[in-house]
Design a protein around this nucleic acid. Structure first.
Lengths: 191, 191
DNA sequence: ATACTCATGTAAGCTGTTACATGATTCT
DNA sequence: AGAATCATGTAACAGCTTACATGAGTAT
């Protein structure tokens, strides 16, 4: 047991937290909540739900709405245990980041100042778009979903921090100033 | 042109910045620099270098060291143009994050307080390990690699911020305090 | 002698996305 | 009537990791 994919855990968690859900429900939930730290596409959600059903972690009930098919999933006891086991296990969690803006910045030495500033601005614009998406998805405050709120606050904080960092860097570059933090290393290098 | 993968861009950039390089060189460079915002494994690097060669963006020269094979790659003019085109293009850059610690936190409502704190602590421990890795990889200060340094500073900042955020949350949870930012929403909810 | 680093690669497999296909219901 | 949303799914493909395989040179 417990060789579930991260996405399987996400589905289990969503169903636990929100109760009985369809694949479509989960897809929308992900879009307004975990999207920025754990994405999942429909091409992944539907097959994975089936797999979890076949493994006995979810049960499916067909509840068509008029002539429209609808599969509502519920967690089994085993599913709940699996979720709890994952939440309390002590394996180091996955952390992966792909930040193309930062990668460009890393290689920006050969550009002229305007181009460099443009790279930072593009990186900031993207972070602003993400922050906007998070802001718009304000979770309603519910005492039983404190941690949904906390994760949301983290999103605001981390992307807000990055935006401020970018602004500072843009200003430094525009004014030909040495970016913060380089002074000390300037001082420590002798030749 | 310009349908290169992100990893191809990484290789092009590394070769531009560092000059003639072997796949092994790049592998090690990635491990101490871009790893935390753009990873690349050897199973990807070697085939991609070949592909870039066959597309005329890199040239390969066989320079065995004793009986040990060695392929040294250099960027062609086309490769340099490709790199510059990417750095200055205005397409919104890739940003992806998979943060399992945060995902656990998102689902932590059903845990007891000790377990909740443990989730945060695990998330922090991981960020501390990453910060440590970044710190150890201090890039030597070189005026022509200012942006390598800037990206490094960003790494220190962003992971440092997250660590402080986790500490604050741990303290709040331990003392049964309502986490920062929840007060306002507490006030706004009437019942 | 032995272990470590240099050096290159391949194969299997997993994860995930994109794009497409289908069709019903509800809103305007 | 037409558009948007609800709802489910598949197929093709891209990207990446892990593990393995191989072997030479270098440092202890």
């Amino acid at each position: 047991m417990s060789d579930l994919s991260g996405t399987a855990r996400l589905l289990l968690g969503m169903i636990h937290v929100k109760g009985r859900r369809t694949g479509y429900d989960i897809k929308r939930l992900v879009e307004v909540s975990t999207r920025f730290f754990w994405a999942a596409s429909p091409g992944q959600i539907y097959p994975e739900l089936k797999r979890l059903e076949s493994e006995g972690l979810l049960t499916r009930s067909e509840e068509p709405h008029g002539g429209r098919a609808r599969n509502v999933y519920t967690a089994t006891d085993e599913g709940e245990q699996e979720l709890h086991g994952w939440l309390t296990e002590s394996a180091d969690p996955v952390f992966e980041m792909r930040n193309e803006g930062l990668l460009k910045l890393f290689f920006a030495d050969s550009l002229n100042t305007e181009e460099q500033i443009e790279v930072v601005r593009a990186m900031r614009a993207q972070q602003e778009a993400i922050l906007d998406g998070i802001r718009k998805a304000t979770p309603p405050y519910r005492p039983d979903r404190k941690f949904g709120y906390i994760a949301w606050l983290y999103g605001l904080g981390i992307h807000g921090w990055t935006i401020e960092w970018c602004k500072q860097l843009e200003a430094d570059l525009a004014e030909g100033r040495v970016p913060q933090g380089l002074q000390e290393s300037d001082a420590s290098q002798t030749r």
